[in-house]
Simulated assay, not measured.
Amino acid sequence: MRIQIRTKVGASLKEIKKGFTEDLFLSLNPPFPPVKLKQFDGCSAGDEVILELNFLLFKQVWKSEIVEETETEVSWHFIDVGVKLPFFLKKWKHHHGVEHEESGSTIIDDITFSTGTILSDLVMYPLLYGQFLYRKPIYKKTFEKT
């Protein structure tokens, strides 16, 4: 399944790229499940991010690798792919994009995922959509025009 959320912000492409830090990453995580960041290398090809998700009765490790990064004068994109995923996910690909516009930029979260069955994909879709919709006001606040 695919989720795509676009967020317009007032900051420049350069400001957004500079702001994609460990602190931003932590602020983008919703309250549940609580996330413990075990490793954050950055947003360049070959970097890894390792999380521990706490579902109260059990914990799950999520490891992603940045497999691609592309930058032009008008856009910046990087892709993370799930290497080790929580039991309820079989595939994960998150294309992070930033596109320059006249009055700022648009941040794009473009996620493709699979749980292994269409039925469980349909159950997970609104949960994951909500998790990424949570990011919109954080992006807007973090990257408001200064």
Score class of each variant (00 low, 15 high):
F143V: 08
E144G: 00
P126E: 01
Y125C: 02
S12V: 11
E65C: 10
L127A: 13
E48Q: 14
G46W: 02
L128P: 01
M1Q: 10
I108R: 01
F88M: 07
I16F: 03
K90T: 13
V81P: 01
E68I: 13
K8E: 14
M124G: 10
I118A: 05
Q4Y: 09
S120Q: 09
L53T: 10
G82D: 04
N29I: 11
G10R: 04
T112V: 15
G19V: 10
G10E: 07
I118E: 03
K141F: 02
F113G: 09
I79E: 03
P126Q: 03
V123F: 06
R6I: 15
K38H: 08
G116K: 10
S103K: 14
P86V: 11
S105E: 06
V49G: 08
F143Q: 01
I66Y: 00
K38I: 15
K84S: 13
S105A: 14
F25M: 08
S75N: 06
K63C: 09
F20C: 15
I50R: 09
I50H: 07
S114D: 12
H100V: 14
F87D: 08
H94L: 07
D23A: 11
S120F: 14
S120P: 02
E52N: 12
V61M: 12
P34H: 01
K14G: 07
K36M: 08
H94R: 05
P137Y: 05
V9Q: 00
F87E: 07
H100K: 15
K140N: 00
C43Y: 09
T21D: 08
F32A: 06
S64C: 15
R135N: 04
K38N: 13
G104I: 06
I108H: 01
V67C: 05
L133P: 01
K8P: 11
E101G: 12
V67R: 03
T115P: 03
H94P: 06
T142G: 00
A11G: 04
T112R: 13
S120K: 11
D41V: 12
Y129L: 11
F87H: 06
E144D: 05
E69Y: 04
